Computed example of a mutant assay.
Amino acid sequence: MKPWRVVADGGLDAYADLLNDVPVAPFSLHMGHESFRADEIRREDLYARLRSGGPHPTSSQPTPQQFAELYRAAGDEAVLAVTISSGLSGSLNAAEGARALVPGADVTVHDSRTLSAAQAFQVHAARSARQLGHTVETARAWMQAVHAETELYFTIDTLEYLRRGGRIGRVTATLGGLLNLKPVVTVDKTSGAYTNVGRARSWGKAIEAVAQQVTARFGAGTPLRVGLLYGVDRADADTLLALLRERHELVWAGFAAVNPVLNIHTGPKAVGLAVAPGAWPWERGTA
């Protein structure tokens, strides 16, 4: 079997306890006349800019050249590139386009159809397959099994940042444009785009609504794996974790800060999670 490696893009929010340490093609952030790689700006500096009232930051997908650098670095190994949902970004197209820049490279591009913590779950599946000596085809099957059973839910303090970033779409349509509501947002598994599944009128109730959504989806008492996400305040994720522990056995829980390129759409105050039932599919023999 030909050796292979996993790479990803900047839609990934990585967890120290998962097999998420992979080379990443970064997104870029643009603030007025300044541009940064998303991994070059501190989250605290981004929050200050978001609150300053100046030009709203925008993001751009990795370039084909950045993906090509990752493909070249693989040498003789094949590459499995795991991208953010094509329903949210053109990163998949850049990853595909990079093939032409590295003639002869053996590259498989996988659309995660999600992002952030849920993308991290799929990267973990792919690297687990590699670590256990399986093929890229097996890795893709494991990622698809993970995608099928994983949900991503998050809530934000205001819809204003989604509106500014042009990502509000079906969320605002569902809420009727009432910007004072706190939505519970997920990524639709078919379109790979944001959609609203709940709402609340206070921040505390919004965090409760995320926990309620999890239990409604998986059933009270179901053992869960949860990758928690937070914006400016880690305590929000701790609150969500405590609510989940009241309803579920947690077989694994980890924390990650939302990365800057996603923060420009969520705003500073955000909390969420990727969540799936029990053990990983390959550990249960269902992948």
Rank of each mutant, 00 (worst) to 15 (best):
V136A: 02
E69W: 07
F255P: 10
E151R: 13
A48I: 00
G133T: 06
T135W: 07
V271N: 02
V171I: 12
K269R: 15
L18D: 03
L152T: 09
V258P: 00
T190H: 15
R130K: 10
S86K: 07
A120K: 07
R140P: 04
P62C: 10
R140D: 06
R201Q: 10
S191G: 06
Y47S: 01
D76E: 14
H147P: 00
A141F: 09
A220F: 14
W203M: 00
H33K: 14
W282E: 10
A100N: 14
G169Y: 09
V107W: 01
P281E: 00
H30C: 09
H30E: 13
N180L: 14
R5E: 13
S202Y: 09
G192P: 02
V232Y: 13
I84D: 06
V210I: 08
Y47V: 10
M31N: 11
A209Q: 11
E249Q: 14
E283W: 12
D236N: 10
A14L: 05
A274S: 10
A148N: 08
Y161D: 02
A117N: 07
G231A: 10
G53R: 05
L240R: 13
I156N: 04
G166L: 01
D111L: 08
V226C: 03
D39R: 06
A94G: 02
A25P: 11
G272L: 03
Q66F: 02
H124F: 10
T58A: 11
N180R: 15
R140V: 15
G133L: 08
V24W: 03
A125S: 11
E151P: 02
E208W: 14
V109L: 00
K2M: 12
Q212S: 12
D21K: 15
L46A: 04
A256I: 05
G54N: 08
P277T: 11
L229W: 08
R170Q: 14
A118Y: 01
H56P: 07
T135M: 01
V197T: 13
R167A: 02
Y71G: 06
V232E: 15
G204E: 08
G219T: 05
R284T: 13
T138F: 13
A211D: 06
A276D: 03
Y47F: 14
V271D: 02
L88G: 00
A38R: 08
L241F: 08
T135H: 03
D188L: 06
R164K: 15
L12N: 08
